[in-house]
Simulated assay, not measured.
Amino acid sequence: MSLTASQAIYVSRLGRGSLGFAALVAAVLAGICIGETPIPVSIVLQTLANKIFGSAYVLDPIDMGIIWNYRLPRAIIAACCGSGLAISGMALQSLLRNALADPYLLGISAGASTGAVAVAVAGLGAGAISMSLGAFVGAVAAFALVAILARAAGGGVTSHGTGQIVLAGIAESQLFNALTSFIITKSANAEQARGIMFWLLGNLSGARWPDVWLAVPIALVGLAACIWYARALDAFAFGSESASSLGVPVRRVQVVLIGFTALVTAVMVSIVGSIGFVGLVIPHAARFLVGVRHGRLGPATALIGAVFLITADVLSRTIVPGQVLPIGVITALVGAPAFAVILIRGRGAP
């Protein structure tokens, strides 16, 4: 019996969704199994069965501890961080109509790092505010300064075909990176400074279950916001004026999505540090695979970002035997050439 066109589309989407979910599960399993001490998949599955379903497999307590307390939360945090940063980059590229926009290049990650370090090292707030809240304030402040500088330069935050917003972001990144270094130098001892500098390059070594309970809801909320405003983001492809003529509340959409972008970026930075280029590269890869309609692009971007950062984390633990590289080093090795390609192609909008 032949399928109707709508049934064929549904089956195709179901197949792509199943394939994507399988890729995510495979990436998580790889993140758990691969490390300085390789662990067989069978041991991982038995450990998960013991912890989740109350099974009674007899296993080495050390292996169970490594899997449950260290590698599983690390893989989940990597997935959430990759997903959150990727959808943040997608939203910014659509809102600003600039293919080079992402939280790292626009200074949002740098501002979040400054806010988090100010709370953790300098004691800003006297213990009354968390690192995540401090990072959020820093992220919002950074983007506000970028917007002001871009507008003063005559570009604005939604102008088409200009580089002011990216140039302003690069300038503000340097400013907030300098502030972060100043705070560390002034307030941290030598041991703290070494740990923070490693964390600022992206470090998942400290990821534990309390971080999972924070990262998972934030990543899901960010994805839900992008899906909710998918049609509005589609309209922004024609410019903010065209979107307004189509009935899109332009200012409200911009404020809400930029706010969610700052929130997602701030939380991820407060957990794992500043990881660059994920929000730049992944949305372009997703557009290549599923097209530019945000109803499909949002979930695809989140999924590819999650798989990408888990893979980068595995490489950071294995590429140099006996050492763990900052995960930002791996993402930069991929992202910098991709940035060059996008820049050379000269695309002003996604």
Rank of each mutant, 00 (worst) to 15 (best):
S42W: 10
P350V: 12
F53K: 02
P350E: 08
P38M: 04
I184M: 12
W209Y: 01
F182I: 15
E241W: 05
A139M: 11
S181D: 12
A338P: 02
P321A: 14
V341Y: 14
C81R: 00
V278T: 05
P40T: 05
F288R: 13
I258K: 02
I9T: 14
C80F: 05
L223N: 04
I342S: 02
F21A: 14
N189D: 15
S173P: 05
A112M: 05
E241R: 14
F53C: 01
I282T: 10
G20H: 01
G328R: 01
A135R: 09
G161R: 10
G328S: 04
A237R: 12
G295N: 04
S6F: 00
T265C: 13
G163S: 14
T185N: 13
H294V: 03
L72W: 06
A139Y: 07
V267Q: 03
S109A: 13
I66Y: 04
G125Y: 11
S94H: 07
A78L: 11
A302Q: 07
V140G: 06
T180F: 05
V278W: 01
T301Y: 02
C33M: 14
C80N: 05
M90V: 03
A340P: 00
G163P: 02
G169W: 03
R296P: 00
V137H: 00
N69M: 02
V121D: 00
F339R: 06
G298F: 09
T162P: 00
P210D: 04
P283S: 08
R287Y: 07
G107R: 06
L179E: 02
G247C: 08
F236N: 02
L214D: 04
R13T: 08
A302M: 13
V255I: 15
A142W: 01
A22P: 00
I43H: 09
P249D: 10
A122P: 06
A300S: 14
W68N: 08
A190W: 02
A306I: 10
A332T: 11
E36I: 09
E241M: 10
A207R: 06
I344Y: 14
Q323N: 13
I271W: 03
T162G: 06
R16G: 07
L133K: 01
L124C: 09
G298M: 08
A349R: 13
S159C: 08
T158G: 12
R231D: 13
S173T: 13
T162H: 06
G169A: 12
V329T: 13
D60S: 15
L315T: 11
A139V: 11
A79F: 11
V264L: 08
D313V: 03
S83L: 13
L167S: 08
L200A: 09
D211H: 15
I258M: 15
F136V: 06
V212K: 11
I304S: 04
A168V: 07
I218N: 04
V269N: 09
L48M: 14
V121Q: 05
D63M: 14
